[in-house]
């Protein structure tokens, strides 16, 4: 890999200044993704700003929400008492991701910012608009079994990107209405989780709406009565340690067999974690029943658009939604 400078800032301000002062600097935390990207020549930053020593590790309940520091490790969050009690969906999603060793290194902020695992992105011998804008999309007419069925359009062809966001955690955070707290030279701002990541459009090289030099400080999850009827279902090619073909996060608030609140999100299907407001609406106010789940699943997958090798995701996605909902209400 290319030689690089290394800097360890003492404060958040110092960290942002360090990145801002260099045209090709990157923050590094757990490094579980960035190091791979550097080893394979996908990114070659000239300077790494190691934020591991910044005070951003805390997981604390504030008034009305749980704040999880950006440097909290995936394993710490997954096993944290409050997370398990109040947001078990998040714990499930985290446990479905990566391996024990990786979860012990990977941070919450890094998880949100991890890059796609699209094979064309990872091998510099292939064209990839995300890695090398303008080089074309290798997957568009290539092997696209793992690729997006939502959020693609005519623009997503050769000129854009059909890669999917690989995170499990993010699928749960989207369902839980989380907010990402970031800071930069212009100060702090809060980004609703659904607005954090973006669709590829004309700039497939950009995964998120985080601005240059901005740093994630924390994720905030509002309190909600979504503890009992939740499930994170990850469908993959082996029992563990594989990225999702599709994954489903469901959270239901049920009052006397009636669905009061429904949250339904999916991973492995789009350039960003995907939410289904229509399907949520269909379930809201309805009794818990398999036919309601099926209606929701059908509605969710409407508008999905298949390529040569990923048409199975339309059916698998619907089936996985039904399975996840059934499991969430204890009727699997």
């Amino acid at each position: 890999m290319k030689p690089f400078l290394y800097y360890r800032p003492k404060t958040v301000k110092d960290a942002i200044a360090a990145v801002a002062s260099h045209p090709d600097a990157r923050f590094i935390a757990g490094g579980t993704n960035l190091i791979d990207l550097m080893k394979r020549g996908i990114v070659s930053p000239e300077k790494l700003v190691d934020i591991n020593h910044l005070p951003l590790k805390k997981i604390e309940q504030k008034g009305g929400f749980l704040r999880i520091g950006a440097l909290a490790l995936n394993s710490e969050v997954a096993n944290h008492k409050t997370v398990l009690q109040k947001h078990p969906l998040l714990a499930q999603a985290l446990h479905a991701g990566a391996s024990g060793q990786l979860r012990n290194m990977a941070t919450v902020g890094g998880n949100i910012l991890q890059r796609t695992r699209c094979n064309y992105f990872y091998d510099t011998a292939f064209p990839c608009n995300k890695r090398t804008p303008g080089s074309g999309c290798g997957a568009w007419e290539g092997i696209n079994r793992m690729h997006a069925i939502f959020g693609t359009n005519e623009k997503s062809g050769q000129d854009s990107c059909i890669a999917v966001h690989p995170s499990d955690m993010c699928v749960a955070l989207l369902a839980l209405d989380a907010v990402v707290l970031v800071t930069g030279q212009q100060g702090e701002r809060r980004i609703p989780f659904g607005d954090f990541h973006r669709l590829p459009g004309d700039n497939p090289e950009l995964d998120s709406n985080l601005l240059n030099n901005e740093l994630i400080l924390a994720v905030e999850i509002p309190d909600a009565p979504l503890t009992r009827h939740v499930h994170y279902l990850k469908v993959r090619d082996r029992a563990s340690y594989a990225f999702a073909l599709v994954s489903v996060a469901v959270a239901l608030e049920i009052d006397q067999n009636n669905i009061k609140t429904a949250r339904l999100t999916m991973g492995g299907v789009a350039h960003k974690p995907w939410r289904f407001p229509e399907a949520e609406k269909i379930m809201t106010g309805q009794p818990v029943s398999e036919s309601v789940f099926q209606q929701a699943a059908e509605a969710a997958m409407q508008g999905g658009r298949a390529l040569e090798h990923n048409a199975y995701k339309l059916k698998l996605g619907a089936n996985a939604i039904v399975q996840a909902l059934k499991t969430a209400v204890g009727k699997a």
Binding site: N119, Y122, F126, G138, D237, R238, A239, S240, A242
Partner: peptide, 13 residues
């Protein structure tokens, strides 16, 4: 295109 352990799966425990 499957030239790493992300995409070439072998059984895990």
């Amino acid at each position: 295109i499957t030239n790493d352990f992300v995409s070439y799966h072998i059984p895990v425990y």
